[in-house]
Design a protein around this nucleic acid. Structure first.
Lengths: 144, 144
DNA sequence: CTGGTGATGTTATAGGATAACATTCAACTC
DNA sequence: GAGTTGAATGTTATCCTATAACATCACCAG
């Protein structure tokens, strides 16, 4: 999907959820989209400052939080970062694989394995919330 | 296992790995042990300052890192915290369940479900490293 | 117009982690 | 026992991440 199409679909998606993809939020999403993998809040902040002169942390954090809440981004806690979710319109649980060597990131669907984890947790009386999983390891090209 | 026994077993465990559980490291481990669940680095730092007057962040971070490397603690990244590993002497992959309501933490063995995740990842050419999994949700007593 | 609501701007600060360098300590060799 | 070496710890400073608190603005409904 190209960038323009992604953005307009994202906008529709937010509308369906009763939220507005404002100019600022759109701009932040676009910036994150410009990175191949995980990007940090302060990197986005720096980019935003280049584009509009001034910007403070809360501005970018609010936009990022909004995008996460609307499913357009995943927050990668282990890395203090954010990554675009390519398939925000179908409900899913992502499996985010982070390469410890190159820092690259792959996203898989984890609905199946998540069910197994949910079962194991339910046996202990714990109700697992919908969420993404982050695993570290080594990606294909770094295994050489 | 009581505290004293745990500490002396921990010491033996480190020795087997060729490392030393020094007085400082032991003291930090003891402090973490004093908490029922997850504890933050700066909380440990504050405790350490109470006990020995002065202490700087690197002191406690170095000790915590050492304890994690030797399997005595788990790092809970989603919470910026640390938690004691009760069974450091048998190799395992932990499943750490964090209650979003009360902050309580439970640790389960996740060797089975982890294998499923590893398979799914291997299909994408990604080699998952041994690690613990952190999931958020709601614990039994908070589900009422 | 006016009041209300959601979004954004602004300032300040809290909280988490590490770099870089100095010093001390334990163990080993000679 | 003196010297040497490497690990561990002390010390200072700083960077990165995140949010609280309050001010302002834009928009729409009545």
């Amino acid at each position: 999907m190209d960038k323009t199409a992604f953005l307009s679909q994202a906008e529709q998606h937010c509308l369906r959820l009763g939220n507005r993809l404002t100019a600022l939020r759109r701009q932040v999403l676009e910036l994150v989209l410009g990175y191949p993998g995980v990007v940090k809040a302060y990197q986005v902040l720096a980019d935003l400052q280049k584009e509009r002169g001034v910007a403070a942390p809360p501005t970018v954090y609010r936009a990022l939080d909004f995008l996460v809440e609307n499913g357009l981004l995943h927050r990668v806690e282990a890395l203090n970062g954010f990554i675009v979710c390519e398939h925000f319109d179908c409900p899913h649980e992502g499996l985010i694989l982070v390469c410890a060597r190159c820092g690259g990131v792959t996203e898989l669907d984890a609905t199946g394995p998540m069910a197994a984890l949910r079962d194991a947790s339910a046996a202990a009386g714990f109700a697992v919330a919908p969420q993404n999983l982050v695993l570290t390891g080594t990606c294909q090209s770094c295994q050489a």
